Computed example of a mutant assay.
Amino acid sequence: MKPAAAIIDWVGTGLREELDTCCGGSVATLLDHLLAPGHIDRMHARGNLGALLADAAALAEEPLIAEAYGRCTRRLADELTALLAQGQLAGEIAPGLDPAAGAWWLLSFIASHRFRGTALPEESRTELENGIARLTRRMLTGGAGPRPSGD
């Protein structure tokens, strides 16, 4: 299972690179990108980074995979925590938000995508996904930062 663990590490690196290069340093713009309609669908499409990470979660009973999955997820949470703290300093993220709790909330929202996709029919899932994304953005920003169009 060592190759599978290496793939998970590679996925984590790719996801962190996307966070680092996306949206020109504005945390609110990064959130808009991450929460945009269709973005999570694309990330979870077969063969994409999000799908590979979600598949790894399902295989986490293997010790090497569980270790790699935990390492990857914690690194993403740390990166998001730092970005949310940076956004607080810039006035884009709610000042009272615990950045670590916000990071794990965001990861939980993204990770539960497959659950919602399995449990709900497409027509109601899309509306629900958009509603949860708007709620997540408002919770993280407290209304600060630029607003996505249609919000």
Rank of each mutant, 00 (worst) to 15 (best):
G102E: 00
I7P: 00
P99Y: 01
E17N: 12
I8S: 03
D78L: 09
A144L: 07
R75W: 07
G14Q: 15
A57W: 08
P37C: 01
A28L: 11
L52P: 03
L83K: 15
G96M: 08
R147P: 01
T73Q: 14
G142D: 06
A66G: 14
R116V: 13
M139K: 08
A101C: 01
K2W: 10
L107I: 15
A6M: 14
W104A: 02
P121A: 06
R42Y: 04
L135A: 08
R46C: 05
E61R: 11
R134C: 00
A85D: 15
A57C: 05
R137M: 05
L19C: 07
H39V: 04
L97D: 04
A58E: 13
G145L: 09
R46F: 02
D98K: 05
E123H: 09
R138A: 06
T141I: 06
P146A: 15
V11E: 04
L52N: 05
E61A: 13
E18R: 13
P99K: 08
T29F: 06
I110S: 05
A45Q: 04
I65Q: 07
G102N: 00
G131D: 05
R42M: 13
T29V: 13
T81Q: 10
L19G: 04
L89G: 15
L120A: 09
D9M: 02
I8D: 03
L83H: 13
T126M: 03
V11C: 08
G91V: 12
G12Q: 10
A66F: 08
T136C: 06
D78H: 10
S124A: 13
I8P: 03
A58H: 14
T126P: 02
E127D: 14
G25T: 09
L31R: 00
A103Y: 06
C22G: 13
Q88K: 15
I93S: 01
E129T: 03
T13C: 10
L89T: 15
V27G: 07
L53A: 13
P148Y: 03
E62I: 15
P63I: 01
A60S: 12
R75T: 12
T136W: 01
M43C: 09
G47C: 06
G96H: 08
P3Y: 11
H113W: 14
S112E: 06
M43S: 15
C23M: 01
A100N: 12
L15N: 00
R137L: 05
M43Q: 08
D32Y: 00
G38N: 06
A56Q: 05
P63F: 06
R125H: 11
L35F: 11
L76G: 04
V27D: 05
A56Y: 02
D55Y: 11
S112A: 13
E62D: 09
L76S: 07
L59D: 01
